[in-house]
Write a protein that binds this DNA or RNA. Structure first.
Length: 192
DNA sequence: GTTAAGATCTGCT
DNA sequence: GCAGATCTTAACG
């Protein structure tokens, strides 16, 4: 069962929290990769200096201003991709960053894409790592997350995954004080 | 045309 | 625990 547009049309912070426990799936020519989302961050358009959209629409962040339920992928620090889900009304410019997932299917493929011999807990515990393990790159910018080969799946047991906690966001120089990062407390695969 | 900063990760100390 | 790698984007001249 996949998500409908309505799910992403609600308050961005709420979507960020409710995505926890659901699946992110990726189909490659070599097989299926699947993980449970355990860490997200909300980026709001209004009064959120940390959000790319806060300084107006540009070529880079145009996807954020598009219709919800799409992937917003951007390149950062010369080495890493970050994967977001666009939320809110079209034109608003809000998104949820997926920071970490718990591997469920295709760990061998994740290992292969990550290259290095890393521990299981190190496979997807961070935005850049997650994108590497799922072989996500800029070509997925604007991709509809209801479509293969990259999509979100509803998990009926999402609520049982554990206690959900809000914390300050990670890695920002501004907007740190906002409690917009949502984690599954105590999960082994959190970025930190 | 040039420059500075960025939603990070890895390796070394 | 900390600095370096590495490159795209946006702002400025």
């Amino acid at each position: 069962m996949q998500f409908t547009t309505d799910f992403f049309l609600r308050d961005t912070a709420e979507v960020a929290r409710e995505l926890l426990g659901h699946y992110l799936a990726r189909e490659t020519s070599e097989g299926l990769i699947k993980g449970i989302i355990v860490e997200t961050e909300a980026y709001l358009s209004s009064s959120d200096p940390a959000c790319h959209a806060s300084r107006g629409q540009t070529k880079r962040n145009a996807t954020m201003f598009g219709p919800p339920g799409k992937a917003y992928v951007y390149f950062i620090y010369g080495n890493h991709y970050c994967f977001n889900v666009v939320t809110g009304l079209e034109g608003k410019g809000e998104a949820v960053l997926l920071r970490a997932v718990q591997p469920v299917t295709g760990e061998d493929l994740m290992l292969k894409y990550r290259g290095n011999n890393c521990s299981e807990a190190n496979l997807t515990s961070g935005p850049g790592k997650l994108c590497q393990a799922f072989a996500i790159d800029k070509s997925f910018d604007g991709h509809d997350l209801g479509d293969k080969p990259l999509y979100l799946l509803e998990n009926k047991s999402a609520g049982k995954i554990g206690a959900i906690k809000a914390t300050p966001r990670i890695g920002l120089s501004v907007g740190k004080e906002k409690m917009l990062r949502y984690i599954v407390e105590g999960n082994k695969y959190l970025s930190r």
